[in-house]
Design a protein around this nucleic acid. Structure first.
Lengths: 272, 272
DNA sequence: TGTACATCAGTGAACGCGCGTTCACTGATGTAC
DNA sequence: TGTACATCAGTGAACGCGCGTTCACTGATGTAC
């Protein structure tokens, strides 16, 4: 609305820059068009407007979901003509990629912060902190959650080179938690399965064990498989709650139910 | 294409009826517009065309996903004008409801059939049969799976009175499995949690325990909570695989990984 | 058995909507001399 | 310090697309007498 006039005279309106560059660094939106460190007015404006664009896009995503995300609607709210957006994003898919990365990063920030607050030796505490932070963020950002853990957006394929780093941050926190836990008793195997199970775990996790961050670690396949199983339970529980898979009101106390399930996952992950 | 001409002269073209009424009963599509048992030509035609409409809709859903589902596209393939569809479905949401119910029913048919083939006393075998059938059907019908277990379709709310019965069939199979298993040792508590956990389970499952089919059963809250946890793990594992949450190729052997996870779920559900 | 009327299925035109993306353009900002 | 040229941001019109839904209509099917 006003913003477009501001941007016209941004050379004379410097306070706007600081306002949005604050947003830029806070919100994890420092990815696009990071130009030279010494910025002219143009570069500064470009960064500011890109940040504003992403703020608006993210708000519209949060309100109406990915399916309703529209370049024209964003342009409208920005007070721009729709074609002007193509100076800042290559196309709709490019914008989606930015939003996906932002969602992953925002969630990972929350999870990392929650885990960092727990004493490092308290692996049980760290697991529940991870799970709770994951759930709380997701409940607060259902559409962003759907974007990264729900049905893939039709006709869109996320470019791995742009999304993988952000998308594996929480899994890395989990992996480090596992390493710290297993480090004590080297080869913890929480579940006594038939012999078959060890072989299944080996086959299932073959590729993963040679992938960062755990490549090079001396890990037990069963430990990795158990960690992934805890992860599946975590994501499954949050999806069920957010997507209302069991129907509204079926679960009397969702928080208690979640804690119960994460206690089961904890036993799977860390043993008793 | 041809069909529209056929339908024009359906009174003289009776073989068409039997062809589609076979489809009608096989595919679980007997819900809409079930008129009088004694059918005139019109009623017969109506049932046939409704079935054909749903067959086409289901195929388009399977091919392009729910987001791309379009009444106009269906009409085109049917060789009708788009407005004609409104004789058969009230609107787009109505069609979605029909597709959701059909997906639930089709999946439940597969699961029930697989479980029925296992000896009733073999609860472990029944669990794995359930899980495998659930996964196999879902992998074969990813878009239909997404419709019932993925991100809810924006601006659509499923009317419970039409979807709940079909949507709980698989859960009912699971509940019966649990009852048969727990029936032996009355109150099986597979996991030794802190005392806290029993209370969590009680709070979490309060509503559910008074809901069919388990209302009236003498169930242990912890047993119900464990059953739901196994369910969460099942749906979570299938969603992760279908939606590619771990990235392509990360899991070397998806089938082995699934079996491993369902073995964990089995321990949660049935104890060791 | 035949006629008169009611019901129903499908037509075709239209309404009003929104979308992503392109392109030639103008006027401001930045740069080199 | 001032001028000439290059770069860049935003405009506005347009292209071509598809969508759900409505409405008055025609001609076939069904029904009551």
């Amino acid at each position: 609305m006003l913003s477009i006039q501001w941007s016209r005279f941004a050379g004379k309106n410097q306070e706007r820059c600081s306002r949005f560059s604050a947003l830029l660094t806070q919100g994890g939106y420092d990815h696009p068009v990071e130009t030279s460190p010494v910025r002219g007015i143009r570069a500064q404006n470009r960064a500011d407007i890109t940040a504003e664009l992403l703020t608006v896009a993210r708000r519209q995503l949060a309100e109406h979901g990915a399916a309703a995300l529209s370049l024209r609607a964003i342009a409208r709210e920005l007070g721009m003509v729709s074609s002007a957006l193509f100076r800042y994003v290559a196309n709709r898919d490019d914008l989606l990629t930015l939003l996906i990365v932002a969602a992953y990063d925002d969630q990972a920030d929350a999870v990392e912060k929650a885990c960092a607050a727990i004493d490092r030796s308290d692996v049980v505490g760290r697991w529940h902190a991870l799970a709770d932070a994951f759930r709380i963020w997701s409940l607060a950002h259902p559409h962003e959650y759907a974007l990264i853990y729900g049905t893939p957006v039709p006709r869109y394929a996320a470019p791995p080179e742009r999304t993988v780093a952000a998308g594996t941050r929480v899994l890395t926190v989990l992996a480090e938690l596992g390493r710290d836990a297993w480090g004590r008793r080297r080869r913890a195997v929480p579940f006594a399965f038939p012999a078959h199970a060890a072989e299944l775990a080996e086959r299932a996790t073959a590729n993963l064990r040679s992938t960062p961050p755990i490549s090079g670690w001396d890990v037990d396949p069963v430990g990795v498989a158990n960690g992934l199983t805890a992860w599946t339970l975590l994501v499954g529980a949050v999806s069920a709650e957010i997507f209302g898979q069991l129907g509204e009101g079926t679960i009397a106390d969702p928080a208690a139910y979640f804690t119960y399930q994460m206690s089961v996952a904890r036993v799977v992950l860390l043993g008793r």
